[in-house]
Write a protein that binds this DNA or RNA. Structure first.
Length: 482
RNA sequence: GGCCCCAUCGUUCAGCGGUUAGGACGCGAGGUUUUCAUCCUCGAAACCAGGGUUCGAUUCCCUGUGGGGUCACCA
């Protein structure tokens, strides 16, 4: 039976390189065995999921060439592939769990839970559900629920014994049941949590191999318990090591650009990027580390996959990238260069520069700062800190702005209007005058004191480049003498 | 902190009981190149520690240490 595998990203924020990494291994394994690679959107968190993020995931994966056989946009006969469209399925299935005692209704309020956790913390106990509603009479619980009393549904984990997760890469991993929390399966808004949705969907979609990051190992036993509760055969589990920052912590945007879009907009070739991701956890053998996706597929074996958490090293990525660019034939490179430079935003750049250039030849020098990663702040550093402001608070405001463009809905889309709206409110909120903040942002984002209208400029630079520059500016300020 | 995962050069991947411990990036030194980059040559650089098992451990087992993950009505 050919394998069926899936990746199940959550459409929150930018497409993550970790998602691409896991997708690559799923894809390689599936294709090697003539199997099916499925994309499922896990949008059960209604407060954080966005449609734009979902589209961004499609774009990023397609850019890399990791095309899926079934998914929300391409269809398939095991759909729907968007969890928010499957809520009836989860409710129906959770009922069988309630009926056979694997799950129970819990009416505890979030206040009580918070209080409980606080007390557990005080007593130096591990925070976990205390089983308050475990002993409720199912009939009573049923009628309270029918009366509309808000509640969740929890997994009834056995008090004794142990549950073993069989990881095909690491061997059996045993957990004491007493250590496993009575996880919420169905939230009070009627949506499932990851655990329930994931198990139900994997089973219904016929997933044979679950290939995911090792941060899921801990919740593995809950999934095993759910398969048991349903009386289903669990899939085979493979937990890959997590991509790391230079300091070995889990890859995070605090310390590294983690958006696939970032690497795309800075002009790495998709094949290079994929190859680089591949060597982080896969070895071809024969000391060979340059290979294509097809070659990886052809050679894919689990014995060639390592479980350590590799550091994502951008320096080596650059080395690969340089090699690949040099290997391109001149015509192909020319096309790639022209496309990268002018493909998406040529009209914008023309519009932004037309009033400011006198000769055609002025164009390239004028728009040069719209390209490239880091810029040199030496020339503008003395002008960055506004009068009446300290270096420290200047750095602080830049950091806050950096966070703000992540969180704020208007700013996140990175449109001219959205940025203007956000920035104005941001300045006011932080007690900065636009006159102080905007020139600072211009310097930080462009390395210049003059540019087209700030928000037009930021939008044309693109979110990832702006983010990179802002971080660079903060660093430049930090090491500056005053 | 509890539980769980991981452990070879700075980084990454090899090695799967006996090797001068290998390749790549990075780093250093030379060379080619008017400069820079490229390219070529050479070099420095690792088996976390302690116990076992074994004729023999980087390799198998245990303990410790270190790093990481996870402990939500987020995935």
């Amino acid at each position: 039976m050919p394998p069926r595998v899936r990746i199940a990203p959550s459409p929150t924020g930018d497409p993550h390189v970790g998602t691409a990494y896991i997708a690559l291994f799923n894809y390689a394994f599936a294709k090697k065995h003539g199997g099916t690679f499925i994309l499922r959107i896990e949008d059960t968190d209604q407060t954080r999921s966005t449609a734009s993020s979902e589209v961004a995931i499609y774009d990023a994966l397609r850019w890399l060439g990791l095309d899926w056989d079934e998914g929300p946009d391409v269809g398939g006969d095991r759909g729907p592939y968007r969890q928010s469209e499957r809520t009836a399925i989860y409710r129906e299935h959770v009922q069988t769990l309630i009926d056979n005692g694997t799950a129970y209704r819990c009416f505890c309020t979030s206040e009580r839970l918070a209080q409980m956790r606080a007390e557990q913390e005080r007593n130096k106990q591990n925070p976990r559900y205390d089983g308050h509603c475990r002993g409720l009479d199912p009939k009573d619980a049923q009628s309270r629920a029918a009366a509309g009393e808000p509640h969740v549904i929890r997994l009834r984990v056995p008090e004794e014994g142990e549950t073993t997760l069989h990881d095909e890469l690491r061997g059996p991993i045993a957990f004491q049941n007493a250590e496993i929390d009575d996880q919420v399966l169905l939230k009070s808004d009627g949506f499932p949590t990851y655990h329930l949705a994931n198990v139900v969907d994997d089973h219904l979609m016929g997933i044979t191999h679950v290939i995911r990051g090792e941060d899921w190992i801990t919740s593995g036993p809950k999934h095993v318990l759910l398969y048991q509760g349903f009386g289903w055969e669990p899939p085979l589990f493979f937990h890959l090591g997590l991509l790391r920052n230079g300091d070995k912590s889990k890859l995070s945007k605090r310390k590294n650009p983690v958006s696939v879009d970032h690497y795309r907009s800075l002009g790495y070739l998709p094949s290079t990027f994929l190859n680089f991701l591949a060597i982080l956890g896969f070895s071809m053998g024969e000391d060979r580390e340059r290979f294509s996706l097809d070659e990886m597929v052809a050679e894919f074996e689990w014995s060639k996959v390592s479980t350590g958490g590799p550091v994502f090293d951008p320096v080596k990525l650059d080395a690969f990238s340089g090699d690949d660019i040099r290997a391109m034939d001149p015509a192909a490179l020319r096309d790639a260069l022209v496309e990268h430079a002018f493909g998406g935003r040529i009209d914008t750049l023309v519009e932004l520069s037309r009033e400011r250039i006198n000769r055609l030849d002025d164009f390239i020098p004028y728009v040069s700062f719209f390209f490239g990663g880091e810029v040199d702040y030496a020339a503008v550093l003395p002008k960055m800190v506004p009068k009446k402001r300290e270096k420290k608070e200047t750095m602080k405001i830049l950091k806050a702005y950096l966070e703000g463009i992540e969180k704020d809905d208007a700013a996140r889309a990175f449109t001219v209007d959205g940025l203007a709206e956000f920035s104005k409110a941001f300045a006011q909120q932080h007690g900065w005058k636009p006159k102080e903040l905007y020139p600072l942002l211009r310097c930080a984002a462009t390395g210049r004191t003059a540019s087209p209208s700030l928000f037009e400029t930021l939008a044309a630079l693109g979110k990832d480049r702006v983010r990179l520059r802002l971080r660079g500016a903060i660093e430049a300020l930090r090491v500056a003498p005053q």
